[in-house]
Design a protein around this nucleic acid. Structure first.
Lengths: 245, 245
DNA sequence: TCGAAATGTCTATTGTTATAGACAACTGTA
DNA sequence: TACAGTTGTCTATAACAATAGACATTTCGA
């Protein structure tokens, strides 16, 4: 692991940001687990082939995200290290999927509105032309850290009051249950990735240039009737998906 | 869709790169399908709230990637617009998964070597301590465009000659078949995303700051014995995954 | 108590990124 | 043919990113 080049100049991405992204990834991968701290600034500077000040800019960005905390005279300690795993299967459930990975989970309702279904939604949810849907904007946290931002649509009138049910329980599964739907299954999940936009940065507490994993998922009731279509956004440095077949 | 802010200053990511990424994404999402061209430079500058020269830098980067081609007096034409879909299931096959999305596919063997299995590989492939594996570095293309870079490991001696078999056929499925394994299934797939590294940029023809989707997948024979573990990297702006349950 | 090793702060300089304005060159249409 | 609309090129300036070096401050252990 001598002079690990791997940072590019004149690429439109500042060196300090490339280095910050790589250190964040290394922390998430447990590469510094032995010491509980990041290597000294001089060592990182040598490894990436940059000036110490450039490394300091990178570490300052990570400190800003509360991922590390520098202590004068000691080093730069790792505060948080996490990559939550979400299993994707027929029985995908957000909270159960997390299992023992988080002590406490939270589901916040940011906004809800009834609206006319778009063409795409009509196709996905198998609705009649001109149907209405409820749209929920939610933010989910695990142990206080945001792990996903989702926009979900539900057919109306069947789930007209799901916003209230979600607000009470903070769980889609619970909300469905309180509206008389005791079981549902995941029909399909599309996964892509993109850069964080302004809303991601705000809600998911990310910095510019961060990556979000985007899923488009469809859930149906036991009879196969679609009950929910959702677009969810997860911070890529804190989350991975596992598909078990 | 008035003054779409959504580009961040002083974020460590140059404005021209953020804008290039957003235009590339918009093209992939078919937002300019009506005209077949990108909006005029002045319109984009107004929309992103930047100078025209900054937009030109972004478009120059996309032209470099052969995504657009500017024509003086006319506008900036969209040359390529693609987002391949890869289904992930028990029967995930690279080439069949592409189906009609590509006229022609290609599998190149970049490198192969026999090596000692790492701890992680011993666990994943259920090998005995000290076992050896064959490592294949492959690059896959669809219609001439690179769509994935993969490192795959296979148990030895069962698949000792798989490199030759792959080189002949350009297909893992075919290579398995020629070694007497007529069927296999996908056991699990982990999906994450990260920034493109130097090798990604070279092999996948990406520019710095681009996003790659990373999968870690395990295949097993019909008896459940693991036959392949692979880490694959896909350009996120050209690829999405679909999990059908 | 001293020194090694680490982070913190300051000044100065250079190269890249972004803005600004002006005008040239090219295309299609009225 | 004239013109509106588009991309291409040039110059100049300001803001940000990166390098360089020096020295202060803090902590831990010999």
């Amino acid at each position: 692991m001598a002079t690990d080049s791997s940072v590019q100049r004149q690429s439109g991405v500042a060196l300090w940001r490339q280095i910050a992204d790589r250190i964040r990834g290394a922390i998430a991968n447990g590469e510094y687990d032995g010491t509980g701290r990041v290597p000294p600034e001089m060592a990182l500077a040598a490894r990436f082939g940059v000036n110490r000040h450039t490394v300091r800019s990178a570490l300052a960005a990570l400190a800003q995200e509360d991922i590390v905390r520098p202590i004068q005279g000691i080093g730069t300690m790792i505060v948080r290290k996490e990559r939550l795993n979400f299993p994707i299967s027929r029985r995908t459930r957000f909270i159960e999927g997390l299992g023992a990975q988080a002590r406490e989970t939270e589901g916040l309702l940011l906004q809800s509105r009834e609206e006319l279904a778009s063409e795409d939604l009509i196709r996905r949810l198998e609705l009649a032309e001109g149907s209405h849907v409820v749209r929920l904007e939610t933010l989910r946290k695990a142990d206080g850290r945001p792990v996903s931002r989702a926009t979900a649509w539900f057919p109306v009138p069947r789930f007209a009051r799901i916003d209230e049910a979600y607000q009470r329980s903070g769980s889609i599964t619970q909300a469905f249950r309180s509206l008389g739907l005791s079981d549902y299954t995941r029909v399909s999940t599309e996964v892509t990735a993109t850069h964080a936009d302004a809303a991601d940065m705000k809600d998911l507490e990310l910095s510019a240039g961060a990556i979000v994993l985007v899923t488009r998922s469809l859930n149906a009731d036991p009879g196969g009737k679609p009950v929910q279509f959702a677009i969810s956004r997860f911070p890529a440095d804190r989350v991975q998906f596992t598909i078990e077949n």
